[in-house]
Design a protein around this nucleic acid. Sequence first.
DNA 1: CCTGAAATATGATTTGGATCATATGATGCC
DNA 2: GGCATCATATGATCCAAATCATATTTCAGG
Lengths: 187, 187
Amino acid sequence: MPEPYNLIPPSALRPLTRAAGDTVFRQGAWTCGLYVVKCGRVHLERVGPDGERFIIYRAEPGMSLAEASVFSDRYHCDAVVAEAGAFVQIDKAAVLSAFADPDFARAYARQAAQQIQAQRQALEIVGIRRAEERVYAGMVAGLLESSVVDFASALHLSHEATYRALRKLVNDGRIANPTRGTYHLRP
Amino acid sequence: MPEPYNLIPPSALRPLTRAAGDTVFRQGAWTCGLYVVKCGRVHLERVGPDGERFIIYRAEPGMSLAEASVFSDRYHCDAVVAEAGAFVQIDKAAVLSAFADPDFARAYARQAAQQIQAQRQALEIVGIRRAEERVYAGMVAGLLESSVVDFASALHLSHEATYRALRKLVNDGRIANPTRGTYHLRP
DNA sequence: CCTGAAATATGATTTGGATCATATGATGCC
DNA sequence: GGCATCATATGATCCAAATCATATTTCAGG
């Protein structure tokens, strides 16, 4: 659960579970609040002029979605459950009134500023054309935390290209590969 | 100037001008606040283990930078002026105390939530591999506002690839090209 | 312990986008 | 009006990353 929402009164939190394929909310529906993913995955989707579905955002455990709904009357996209899970709905009125508490406001702003920063960095990194430089920038940014597969997906690279780039960086002595599957920057 | 900062007392705003190549602040320096770009361009850069410089963010007129510095003691990257311009420094203490004003807090949160949403969408769009689909998704997202060149850069595509994709979409009847240089979705 | 699935790893082939080149239409300026 | 500059536009070539293929290692579960 993102930190600031710990300051929201528990009565404003409503737990819910959904199966894969269910929708959490639909575009055009009246907003009731934002959501936090406990487990499972949710896709925010927008529908194109010819009915194509565009994924706007993939929310994973610990992430929140539809934060902007707190400030608008209607949801402007669909939230579809990609993987069954448990979620918490946070009442929008409770959030709006929580801004009267400076501690909540600062915690919110702090978390938002940090997220904006991380996203800006991610955008710059995926803008790097050469796989090797992109992977290196990703390592410097600390994006390789769990598996190489997840790392590759964060970089918007195929995992094959990522493995090859890692190998090349190791051969060039730019990163270390002490054991199979573990890589870190040369200190 | 991003909306919420209009609620900051003018005494906390300090205008400054910088030439290209100047630094606005350096990594490790004590934070004094965030900045808004009036004109010119600023790059946030982080230095890698071997001295390589990674651009974290490119701030253009109207954009703010170092928002997170309000919540930390030191700047954690360098801000280098890429193009001479005028900037406004907003005192961090003033921002922190402004969170006591619920109107400021809500305006800030609203703007932050919107920005997070836009960035998430941008990340999803640049993750689309096929140029044609990426361009189409960009059009659906309304990213083609001014020139095709700017559009291409937002999509992380070469402008040539963007023009070709636009042509193909026009030929396939997915978008309209009423006059040279103007494109819009088929209604 | 055995089995299946997923992560790790690398080779071969294909392809789509970057790059280079070139041309024309628009725009601003002196 | 003439000139420079930039956006628009498209063709040709090249290359790097996607894709397909395959093998090994690890690990969870029965």
